[in-house]
Write a protein that binds this DNA or RNA. Structure first.
Lengths: 350, 350
DNA sequence: TTGTACGCGTTATCAC
DNA sequence: GTGATAACGCGTACAA
């Protein structure tokens, strides 16, 4: 590889001039500019962005950690981050935590060693050493898919409480009273926790007793939805509807229900969370809570870059809107059933 | 940020010793090692991997360009690349081309400026300037999802011809004779082209006339499958089965068929390509051609790293196995229909 | 076992 | 408008 020194030698100028031709050509006289351009071609010169970063102390790189790149919802957010970052001359180093805190910690370490100027993380542990260390160092940081509304860390997310509330309310309005929830593990997903709170609050507002037997914590994948719903349907008093923490679980639940002979949506109403693209293409179409995934990523990148530029700035918290998208996976309950269920439930739990 | 110089000063050793503690601690006496370790903590020293790369002329970074990160099949491959790369101390800089050659070219440029040591690309144009330039520079390069079996560029892919052949054969065995194909545009997907060749060859082997009206080139997304199948079903002699270039198109086609009142699979058999995770969770389950996406990525990374280590090595071409996964989206044709179709078809095209 | 000194490719600061 | 040169943080001969 040839360097600006080679170019300088060939063009019979100094390295400073070559650098100027690259970074501010207008200050160089047209003739030398031309000579330099020719010299560059002659030795097939390739610019070294790392060397620049080395002297300017800017890597123009940011780190992006998501729990699972295979989930299209995160993939969308990654696109949002990239689109904004690229426009500003930044590249992103991407990592999966696979919902494991140890991997998240390791990635942070590696990415910081590589001099990323900031990090965008969908964290699996809000109160852990990883974030605390970052904070101690005043390291530019934005949380994605987070519900943090205040505090020292910038965050962009959605109102998960309200999302959970809307999902549940939709089911209640359809006449359901025995409503289950397939939730992501609260231990590493505050999202799921808040959705659960919304679910519980909505039940209470509608005077429906909360039955812990109807809430299952599991992982965010298809197979967990499938197995989860089977467990719930095997209960003595099975649910007539289920709210799932994400669309994968919901689609898994659909399949699980079918496998045990439950008709959809008549036998079981299902609500998901995310509104991934495929949700409107399956049968029945999935009723779900829409998250603006791309926009979240884009906004996260915007906030992070603004923080990198002015490191003294106050943290920014953005809560984007969700909305319920009603499709065919939810249906009204037949007249007598809710009565029966509710009386039994209340007899047991109130 | 403190540097090894700060550490050296505090520990009262030379920078060389600090460097040795980091890279080969065993050659340093335990006591100095300890002193250095303490000094590191004292000034909150953070290692700078970029500076190392700068002197060793190795960035330990590779570039990865895929057409669409939102497609889970590519996401799986990305995981495969990352898992292998991380184990070897490499990180990946990721970019989407969105199936646009200009973006692919731009990404190559940016990534090379950033000194990636090699590139893994799912290219949209096999014979373009981008690959030719890379090749001229003897730049370490591996093509992913490619069908190149020889030539100077390393590649890992599957036998798309055979995949297309199997898909078609499965449909023929079920009694179908009027078999359509929803194909990715041949102009930027040699994959799709080869699948189409397999499809045609299989028809010929079974003495079924090829009808160009049954082949639609479109994009690789859900909505294209949906609109594509509607166009095909609106033909005077509509197909009784369709082979789609990927699962997104197939799932889109399912929805499109439903929307025009065609029952699945009785009214239309559908075969996809990829076997993304969700394929077995939709209803009816999608019959599709399985690709080992994760394995492809892993192998691609392995080949690339081996090429980086010995740049003189011969190019390596790996064709992995595909296999048909039969689910419920394909069904036999009722007895008289194929006869009617085939006679009409042959009357028209033979 | 440890220290000295140089170089990696670029930008920035002075001079001229 | 241009040139000389000192950084940037680290690895690595080579010397001690």
């Amino acid at each position: 590889m040839s360097t600006i020194r080679d170019v300088a030698r060939i063009a019979a100028v100094s390295t400073a001039t070559v650098s100027r031709v690259i970074n501010s050509p207008e200050v160089v006289s047209p003739e030398t500019r031309n000579r330099v351009a020719k010299a560059m071609k002659a030795c097939r010169y390739q610019y070294n962005a790392l060397a620049r970063g080395f002297v300017t102390q800017q890597s123009y790189t940011l780190g992006l950690i998501v729990p699972s790149i295979t989930n299209p919802i995160f993939a969308e957010s990654i696109r949002g981050v990239q689109d904004f970052a690229h426009r500003e001359g930044y590249q992103a180093l991407l990592g999966n935590s696979d919902y494991e805190y140890a991997k998240e910690a390791r990635l942070c370490e590696v990415l910081r060693e590589r001099q990323v100027e900031g990090l965008i993380i969908t964290t699996t542990k809000l109160r852990g050493k990883v974030l605390r260390d970052l904070l101690d160092d005043h390291f530019p940081l934005v949380l994605l898919y987070s519900t943090v509304r205040k505090g020292p860390i910038s965050a962009v997310g959605v109102d998960n409480f309200r999302g959970g509330y809307s999902a549940t309310e939709h089911l209640i309005h359809l006449g359901h009273r025995r409503i289950a929830m397939l939730a992501g593990r609260f231990s590493f997903s505050d999202k799921s926790l808040h959705r659960w709170h919304g679910y519980k609050k909505c039940l209470r507002d509608h005077r429906i007793p909360y039955d812990p037997a109807l809430v299952l914590q599991t992982q965010y994948a298809l197979e967990n939805g499938r197995e989860g719903i089977k467990a719930l349907l095997a209960l003595e008093q099975p649910p007539t509807a289920v709210f799932c923490s994400n669309d994968f679980m919901a689609i898994g639940a659909m399949q699980g229900a079918r496998e045990v002979g439950v008709a959809l949506p008549e036998g079981l109403s299902i609500v998901g969370f995310d509104d991934m693209a495929i949700a409107s293409y399956i049968n029945p179409g999935l009723t779900t809570i829409r998250q603006p995934a791309y926009e979240m990523g884009r906004l996260g990148a915007e906030i992070l870059l603004s923080q990198i530029k002015r490191r003294d700035g106050r943290p920014i918290h953005k809560i984007l809107e969700t909305g319920i998208v009603v499709r065919e996976s939810t249906a009204g309950l037949t007249v007598c059933e809710p009565k029966r269920n509710s009386s039994l439930t209340s007899g047991k739990h109130v």
